[in-house]
Amino acid sequence: MSEILVECRALRRSFGSVQALRGVDLKLEPGKIVGLLGPNGSGKTTLIKILNGLLQPSSGEVRIDGRAPGVDTKELVSYLPDREYFPDWMRVSDALDFFQDFYADFDRARAEEMCRALELEQGRSIKTLSKGMREKLQLLLVMSRQARLYLLDEPIAGVDPAARDYILHTILTNYNPQGTVLISTHLISDVEQVLDEAVFLREGEVVLHEAVDSIRERTGQSVDSLFREMFRTGGREGGERNDR
């Protein structure tokens, strides 16, 4: 049995009176690409923030590689938020220097290569780049790390199809095969073929965690189709087998 990389037990998080996570139980093994799937407001971003140490749980336990989120685990986790985080003064080369200085697992040569492929010059000021290019820069920096856990929060939302293909391709060709990639999204049909496993999150709880192949064999539907069914009708079953 392979070791568990990420473990959440009865994880809860509230913001005032709003319960974002209501007791999440989850176990993730290494070497998998996992989709964290759910509608907006289901708690995906909250869960990811707890995993990367940006938020403290209200109660429950989180373990990454057996340890609680902290300085140690941040060395292992490569995080892509759903927003831009570079300061205005930075140039492309500053950003690469930054990652190289703070992350031992950063592969600078690989990052520079990806910049070249995008025709992104090192001397460009980041704030003069287009939004799409800034997002690609963030992605390539995150994927140039040989991390144990990649947390990608909505990497393809609001992105044109060509860029989306680029993003998925970049993820597939650069991730550490011994690591785990957790992709959160509500656009399931676009990422389904990239996933090993799917986790359905509804209103702060995990309602499904299964291998994609298994879902397709068991229900005769794609994960996207099952998702629509489960989240439209509010059915809590794992999807009925369609009579053909």
Binding site: L54, V71, K74, E75, R83, Y85, P87
Partner: peptide
């Protein structure tokens, strides 16, 4: 204010730094 608690905070607080 901006560098740690604004959007740059997403970069800073995920560094392996206390």
């Amino acid at each position: 204010y901006q560098g740690l608690l604004g959007r740059e905070g997403y970069l800073m607080f995920t560094l392996p730094v206390s």
